[in-house]
């Protein structure tokens, strides 16, 4: 077993508010193996995107990283100097942003936007080599060479998302963070973009952290999945096992939630609302909505523990595996 490429240890990202710190990411620990596809799911406001940005140290005020470590191949990105992190971003850890529509510069040609990042990192690369690399990248994400000279408004949403993907892989990073890369696309295009992302991942051998809320997409794409609730991980495990036998009551509800084409009937929602992060419930953050709550849940915060090999869950219903 190879060493983990990305390790996140007890990461805490807070937002400064007039009512005190808002704990958007509160002690998340996870790791990515080389070539692994890891999925991170959660409702809106669960801290998914905050976590994704913090991994690249792109947190902006009023947000700030309160503590913890993000180790990318041994280098702590939280402690790294501004100069060091500039060299790492895109070259080793790249982001595919949520809204491809709005993340491209509307007045720059596609080719210039792709080359921009490469040129910044490889200052000595001659123009002809840059051009060549750019065309290679377009081919990798299945875009036609003539699109190099187009402007973003001439492309459809799926194609813009492919351009973002080309930029993300332009320096063959070790880790790609994809923050809801297809949430603005319809199903047919979504499938095509995800298949391309999968091919690129395999050919480059990068690890992918896919952030999203679509359980269907997760089931189709990732190998391991982490469920985020109110800034904390509720459950982590191999995707097949988590879908077959979800352990945490929240995961159970989340998996029962999406309507399917199989059965028609009652809609199942999760009762209650996600908690306000400024005023978290005591004990387990999920206990006010949990159908299996016990007296202990409102008192003690459950820690994330391994209950079966490879399956981690933060819930009082389970006891730690004995080794």
């Amino acid at each position: 077993m190879k060493a983990d490429i990305l390790q996140v240890r007890n990461l805490r990202v807070y937002y400064q508010t007039s009512l005190g710190p808002l704990k958007a990411v509160d002690g998340v620990t996870l790791s990515l193996k080389p070539r692994e596809r890891f999925g991170l799911v959660g409702e809106s406001g669960s801290g998914k995107s905050t976590l994704a940005l913090a991994l690249m140290r792109l947190t902006k005020p009023p947000g700030y990283i309160e503590g913890g470590q993000v180790l990318l191949d041994g280098l702590d990105l939280i402690k790294a100097s501004e100069n060091e992190i500039r060299k790492v971003r895109l070259a080793q850890i790249a982001l595919v942003p949520q809204g491809a529509m709005s993340s491209l510069n509307p007045v720059m040609r596609i080719k210039d936007q792709i080359i921009d990042g490469i040129r910044d990192h490889l200052k000595k690369m001659p123009g002809s080599a840059l051009e060549e690399r750019m065309h290679e990248l377009l081919a990798k994400v299945e875009l036609k060479p003539e699109m190099a000279n187009m402007f973003p408004h001439e492309l459809s949403g799926g194609m813009k998302q492919r351009v973002c993907l080309a930029i993300a892989i332009s320096l063959s990073p070790k880790v790609i963070i994809a923050d809801e890369p297809t949430s603005a696309l319809d199903v047919v295009v979504q499938k095509q973009v995800m298949l391309t992302l999968g091919q690129v991942q395999e050919s480059l051998g990068v690890s992918i952290l896919l952030v999203g809320h679509d359980m269907g997409l997760m089931a189709q794409f990732v190998e391991r999945i982490g469920v985020l609730y109110a800034g904390k991980l509720a459950e982590v495990g191999p995707v097949r096992e988590v879908f077959k036998e979800p352990l945490h009551p929240y995961t159970q509800l989340l998996i029962a939630c999406p309507p399917s084409l199989e059965e028609k009937g009652q809609f199942k929602g999760i009762p209650g609302l996600p908690p306000l992060l400024l005023n978290l419930p005591s004990g387990c953050v999920f206990h006010p909505r949990c159908p299996q709550t016990t007296s202990r849940c409102s008192v003690k915060i459950p820690s994330l523990k391994e209950v079966y090999p490879g399956r981690w869950v933060a819930c009082h219903l389970y006891t730690e595996v004995k080794r």
Partner: peptide, 24 residues
């Protein structure tokens, strides 16, 4: 119908044979 991601890891998407729409 075939493009809907099914929330079941055992029921994978087939490979796509439909050409990507070239340009809008």
């Amino acid at each position: 119908v075939a493009s809907i991601p099914v929330p079941d890891p055992d029921q994978k998407w087939g490979q796509d044979s439909t050409p990507v729409l070239v340009s809008k």
